[in-house]
Amino acid sequence: MTQSTPAPTDPPAADSTAKRALVELDNVNKHFGSFQALKDINLTIPEGQVAIVVGPSGSGKSTLCRTINRLETIDEGGTIRIDGKPLPAEGKGLAQLRADVGMVFQSFNLFAHKSIVENVTLGPIKVKGLKKSQAQEEAMALLERVGVAQQAKKMPAQLSGGQQQRVAIARALAMRPKVMLFDEPTSALDPEMVQEVLDVMVQLAHEGMTMVVVTHEMGFARKAGDRVIFMDQGAILEDTEPESFFTHPQHPRAKDFLGKILTH
């Protein structure tokens, strides 16, 4: 990673407190049986913020993402609000609120039996009730934006990993989400494909998208991140600006963690 050059950071979101909170986690705990994967998480992400989540393997980063769009339930007593609305229990309301939260997975998870453009239009047609022609038009514009419009008619397996991940981003964007969650979006990619995906994400960040990004890509964190959240053993141990996190980590476990990933 580029640790020597101090990457240009965007002006820190100083006015972020004034912006409305898009994602709010209050007192969130999560148990898998007797194992506690999330411990007392309190987190507010204002509109337009790019929050980078880092931490050792098993620290609960994926679980945190998955609770935000309720792929995992949380323990009683905690609440998660998206744009002020509490996540409802299963059912239609939940499905609708989920559409406000875009999710990009480590393993892309494109629908394997559908073409690239169908992957992007499925949600808008079936969830938002868009007309097929309109959905297709919008999908092509999005595919253009992430640079895979040429591949629109192909099947996912015919694309490279980097292309698939960019399609996955387009698929999530097609729902016009208020916030986008990325769970290690580049860690399943061959090294030469990492940058093309990060470029799309940087662009998205600069356009003002609210993002929660689990990643160990320090370059990206410095370039696009407004904030770094360091997790360990299910708890948030540090929550600060990227530059200060990478140069002056406070918590011993954060130092330890940085030491490990920076020597790679």
Binding site: N69, L71, G91, K92, L94, A95, Q96, R98, A99, V101, G102, M103, F105, S107, N109, L110, F111, A112, H113, L122, G123, K126, V127, A168, R171, A172, M175
Partner: peptide, 24 residues
């Protein structure tokens, strides 16, 4: 991951089953 991606774009159980899981 296929079912999770379907849920993540806002499909509830039956549409996710009908459109994504069962065809495969």
């Amino acid at each position: 991951g296929q079912a999770e991606a379907a849920r993540a774009i806002g499909l509830s159980f039956l549409p996710a089953a009908r459109l994504v899981v069962l065809p495969q």
